[in-house]
Design a protein around this nucleic acid. Structure first.
Lengths: 204, 204
DNA sequence: AACAGCCCGTTGGATAACCGACATGGCGAT
DNA sequence: ATCGCCATGTCGGTTATCCAACGGGCTGTT
């Protein structure tokens, strides 16, 4: 049967969740995530506080679900990884990375806060974990040599993931001075070079 | 008893009306008022269509109530007309006029459409009627001479009201090149001069 | 210590909003 | 003229949301 997984929720449910998400993002930009209370969120969203708890256990849960939904949405268009054009011509950045950067750009004020001092450390962790998953998903597609290497793969993944966050932080702190496609191209070229060098010719 | 007139409506009611208003304004900016359907509005607002009709009879009613509410809100802070400082020093524009211009500035894109070709003529009428009421409310406070004048007061009111709309149109078409306070000062000085000249010394 | 003030998380009954369906009227295409 | 298509209004039955209230925790003030 494979009947629709989307569940086609009640309009009120989708609206309420959307309003609460938007309110959280706005307030986080204005007063930071720590300084934002559930009360603030529901007042801004014009939603009763008790209704909040029907959908989320607390503001962290709201944040989690927001991240999960959007990142899953981004990940859906990822799957098509074409291993044909990885050669030395102009790098065409993977479409998933571009989508991610466009999403970050849409909520740039939000990310600027959340990745900064007034944000939440667990948020940065979530972004890191997501990027790591992206890389791990990419790993088997590149010519991974089976020979035992002295450089642990986990170290490499952590390395390039943090580097990616660093690039994103630079990007949003400087008002996105280049297009998502441009940054995606640079980023993927850099990390690809890292991974090839690390996994390919060892000491070079 | 004089118990509160605000009625303290249900949160759902206020939220629904707000969402529908915002959706109408957005869509009017995008596709004009005539091209916007009730369906469009309810979809954008994430409100069921049947709920729309619980609050408004049609999109014109929605528009009417929006205008009425905001203009009444503006009118509330009007009442204090201080007749002390009308002399030749720097004109302090009446606070109600400044509020009106600030409101127009907030919805400038909306007003630009509604007062233009893709808008609705009845909207312009409503704005005119509101400004006329403002002037008529101001009239008795200035030294109105009882002597029969050859210039009909209604003519004067219509004249300065249309002039005011003209100033507003110029203002929003040129991306509000001056502050609301500045424009209010100019506008009130101009119309005051008109009314004084017309009602005071006749042929001068 | 006692207190006020705020926020949290939860509950039961009231109610606005949703959903689906129907009849209507306009409008363009066959 | 007839058909399909879409937007409009309108209608009960269902449901998510509101409201008011409660107890509990935490912080700062007298």
């Amino acid at each position: 049967m494979m009947h629709n997984m989307e569940e086609a929720e009640d309009l009120r449910v989708r609206r309420t969740r959307k309003l609460l998400q938007e309110a959280m993002i706005e307030l986080t930009i204005e007063k930071g995530f720590a300084g934002t209370t559930v009360r603030d969120i529901t007042e801004r969203a014009m939603v009763n506080r008790s209704t909040f708890y029907r959908h989320f256990s607390d503001k962290y849960d709201l944040m989690d679900q927001f991240m999960h939904e959007t990142y899953q949405l981004i990940g859906d268009q990822e799957e098509s990884f074409q291993p044909g054009n990885e050669c030395h011509t102009e790098y065409k950045a993977p479409v998933g990375l571009v989508s991610l950067l466009k999403h970050v750009q849409t909520y740039s004020s939000f990310y600027r806060v959340m990745l900064g001092e007034k944000g939440d450390p667990s948020f940065t962790q979530k972004v890191l974990k997501y990027i790591e998953r992206r890389f791990r998903h990419l790993l088997p597609n590149m010519g991974l040599p089976n020979k035992p290497t002295t450089l642990p793969v986990d170290l490499l993944v952590s390395y390039v993931s943090h580097a990616g966050v660093g690039a994103i932080v630079w990007w949003i702190e400087n008002a996105q001075p280049c297009s998502p496609e441009q940054l995606a191209s640079w980023l993927s070229r850099l990390s690809m070079a890292d991974m090839n060098r690390a996994l390919g010719s060892e000491g070079e």
